[in-house]
Simulated scan of single mutants.
Amino acid sequence: MPRRTITLLSFFVLGIVGLVGAGLWLMADPKTGIGFDPTTSEFLFAPNNPEVVAMGSQVYADNCASCHGDNLQGAANWQTPDENGQLPAPPHDQTGHTWHHSEELLFRITKYGSAAALLSDDPVLSMPAFEGILHDGEILAVLSFIKAQWPKDVQEMHDRMSR
């Protein structure tokens, strides 16, 4: 292959990589500054950012508390399917299993619903999708709020597990 062709191809590939990187960077929500970090390929929860946590608290109260409880306690008997065969809403405090899932999976479950996020048609999975209801920054804010309520040792375990 001629050297000029290799050089042009290299510039083309670098341009594409740059555009993709810029597009991923732009996935950060402009209101919160949280989003997807293209340098680490990780979602960014911000449990130590008071503004993000405050926003997440309001989003939680408006969209999540009716099922998961005002204090993240979940529904009664959340581990036993109800009369429709669906699991009631689990707690999001440290007594539940939320912190056992990576940031990426928690984001996908919230955005797309549990069945779609887990690629399952199991009727026991009943978490609805919030895509079209909440924007990505609001989803990340509510997940940041939830994480901020966990004890520091649980937050640290979740950080290690999410990596």
Rank of each mutant, 00 (worst) to 15 (best):
R3P: 03
T7N: 01
L8V: 11
S10V: 14
V13P: 02
V13N: 03
V13D: 04
G15H: 08
G15K: 07
I16F: 13
I16E: 04
G18Y: 11
G18M: 14
G21V: 07
G23W: 15
T32A: 05
G33L: 07
F36I: 01
D37E: 15
D37Q: 14
P38R: 11
T39N: 13
T40C: 02
S41Q: 12
E42A: 12
F43E: 06
F45N: 04
V52S: 10
S57K: 12
Y60K: 06
Y60D: 03
A61Q: 11
C64Y: 02
N71Y: 03
A76L: 03
Q79L: 13
T80I: 13
D82K: 13
Q86K: 15
L87H: 08
G96Q: 04
W99A: 11
H100M: 08
H101W: 09
E103A: 13
F107D: 04
R108Q: 15
A116N: 11
A116G: 01
A117I: 12
L118M: 15
S120E: 12
A129E: 03
L134N: 00
D136S: 06
D136H: 07
I139T: 00
L140C: 05
L143H: 08
F145W: 07
F145T: 03
F145C: 03
I146M: 05
A148N: 00
Q149S: 13
Q149P: 08
Q149Y: 11
W150M: 12
P151T: 14
P151M: 15
K152P: 06
K152G: 02
Q155V: 04
Q155D: 01
E156V: 00
S162E: 06
S162F: 11
